[in-house]
Amino acid sequence: MSKTTRMTKQKKVILDILRHSDCHPSADWVYEQARKSIPDISLGTVYRNLNVLRDAGHILELNYGSTYSRYDGNPKNHYHFYCEKCHQLFDVKIPVYEGLDKLVKETTGFEVKSHRMEFYGICNECKDLMMSPSVI
């Protein structure tokens, strides 16, 4: 955390939830999980702490055009796959292509700090369900 932001019990619980989850949850899901450790935590407190953790660079906020954001406990640059059928979000475990940052800078002159890339399609589980014969 930065020097001006202290690690409160609420921030620690929220950060632990996100660091130990690979489902890229919504704030509501984080809130439900946090209530197991801190029963009197409010949804507003969860949202405020998610914003503080995001602004401090400890988590990522991901928005995929829905009415809510999803959160990622891994703040390092990495790629995601979004299943258009079940709406799950998966980490894609491939190396980040740093050459892309250089190409953008060479082409535009822009100073790239990082980039975000998502892949869209159908996950294996949904693909298998679509391929299996219907059960009557």
Rank of each mutant, 00 (worst) to 15 (best):
S66F: 11
K105V: 00
D55A: 11
E106I: 00
N51L: 08
V96K: 09
Y97F: 10
A27T: 04
R19A: 05
L129M: 15
T45F: 03
I17Q: 01
V46R: 06
V135L: 10
C23K: 08
H80R: 15
N77S: 12
Y79R: 11
I94T: 12
R35T: 07
G99N: 11
K36D: 02
V96H: 03
L60S: 02
W29Q: 11
K11F: 03
N51V: 03
Y71M: 07
K36C: 01
I136R: 12
I41K: 13
I17L: 01
T4S: 14
N51G: 08
V13K: 05
N63E: 07
D128L: 09
E32D: 01
Q33R: 15
V13A: 14
E84D: 06
T107G: 06
K36S: 06
K76A: 11
H80E: 04
V104M: 01
L89H: 02
F119S: 06
N63Y: 07
N63V: 01
G44L: 07
F81I: 05
E118I: 06
P25K: 02
P75Y: 07
H115W: 00
K36L: 12
K76V: 12
C83P: 10
S42G: 15
K105A: 10
Y120W: 15
E125G: 06
C86H: 02
S66Q: 13
F119M: 10
N51C: 02
C23W: 00
F110L: 12
G109P: 07
L53I: 08
V30E: 11
E111M: 05
P133I: 01
M131S: 15
Y97C: 04
E32G: 00
G44R: 11
G121S: 08
H80W: 08
D28S: 13
K102P: 00
P133M: 05
F90T: 05
I59D: 00
Y47T: 08
Q88L: 05
Y71W: 14
K113F: 05
L50A: 10
M1D: 02
Q88I: 02
P133S: 14
I14N: 04
G65Y: 13
F110T: 13
I59S: 00
A27C: 10
V96Y: 01
C83R: 04
L15G: 06
D22V: 01
R6P: 02
V92P: 03
W29L: 07
R48G: 02
S37D: 15
Y64M: 14
